[in-house]
Simulated scan of single mutants.
Amino acid sequence: MKESLIAPCGMNCGLCVHYLFMQHDINKQGFHRKYCPGCIPRGEHCTHMGHHCERLEKGEIRFCFECNEFPCKRLKALDGRYRKKYHMSMVENLEFIRQQGMEAFLTKEAEKWQCRECGGVVCCHNGLCLECQMDTLHRNRKYRWHEENK
Results as ranks from 00 to 15, higher is better:
82 Y>G: 02
140 N>K: 15
16 C>W: 00
4 S>F: 07
118 C>V: 01
82 Y>C: 08
18 H>R: 14
130 L>G: 07
122 V>L: 13
73 K>Q: 13
43 G>S: 11
72 C>K: 03
32 H>K: 15
24 H>G: 01
30 G>Y: 01
36 C>H: 06
48 H>R: 08
102 M>S: 03
63 F>R: 10
115 C>I: 08
116 R>W: 00
119 G>W: 07
69 E>H: 10
29 Q>L: 13
63 F>Y: 15
111 E>Y: 09
98 R>S: 12
41 P>H: 04
113 W>P: 02
20 L>K: 03
48 H>D: 11
112 K>G: 03
33 R>T: 06
147 E>K: 10
85 K>S: 11
127 G>K: 10
3 E>K: 14
57 E>L: 04
116 R>P: 14
22 M>A: 12
65 F>V: 00
45 H>A: 08
118 C>H: 01
40 I>W: 06
115 C>W: 10
13 C>M: 03
120 G>F: 09
122 V>N: 13
59 G>T: 14
54 E>A: 12
123 C>K: 02
23 Q>P: 00
137 L>E: 11
122 V>E: 15
135 D>I: 06
15 L>C: 05
143 Y>G: 02
38 G>R: 01
41 P>M: 07
123 C>H: 02
78 L>E: 11
128 L>D: 09
73 K>T: 09
31 F>V: 01
110 A>P: 03
143 Y>K: 09
105 F>M: 00
79 D>H: 06
79 D>G: 02
136 T>H: 05
14 G>S: 12
57 E>A: 06
124 C>T: 11
81 R>V: 06
128 L>V: 03
26 I>R: 13
143 Y>Q: 05
140 N>L: 15
106 L>T: 10
36 C>V: 09
108 K>H: 10
46 C>I: 10
131 E>A: 02
50 G>W: 08
136 T>N: 07
82 Y>E: 11
132 C>H: 02
41 P>D: 09
102 M>D: 07
106 L>V: 07
120 G>P: 04
86 Y>A: 02
8 P>Q: 03
56 L>S: 01
149 N>T: 13
96 F>K: 01
106 L>S: 09
147 E>T: 00
36 C>L: 02
59 G>Y: 05
55 R>V: 05
44 E>H: 05
79 D>V: 13
52 H>M: 04
34 K>M: 11
48 H>P: 01
41 P>Q: 03
61 I>L: 10
137 L>G: 04
44 E>A: 10
10 G>Q: 03
116 R>S: 12
73 K>P: 09
74 R>T: 12
23 Q>N: 13
56 L>K: 01
93 N>H: 15
63 F>T: 10
109 E>N: 12
38 G>M: 00
136 T>E: 11
146 H>T: 07
67 C>V: 08
41 P>N: 04
112 K>E: 14
113 W>A: 02
118 C>Q: 07
7 A>H: 06
80 G>N: 15
142 K>S: 15
49 M>Q: 12
63 F>P: 00
9 C>T: 00
137 L>Y: 12
55 R>E: 12
131 E>L: 13
45 H>C: 09
58 K>F: 01
120 G>S: 10
127 G>C: 11
116 R>V: 03
27 N>F: 03
146 H>F: 15
79 D>I: 04
87 H>F: 02
35 Y>V: 05
87 H>V: 00
69 E>A: 05
57 E>W: 09
13 C>A: 05
134 M>I: 08
126 N>Y: 06
149 N>L: 14
83 R>L: 11
30 G>D: 03
33 R>V: 06
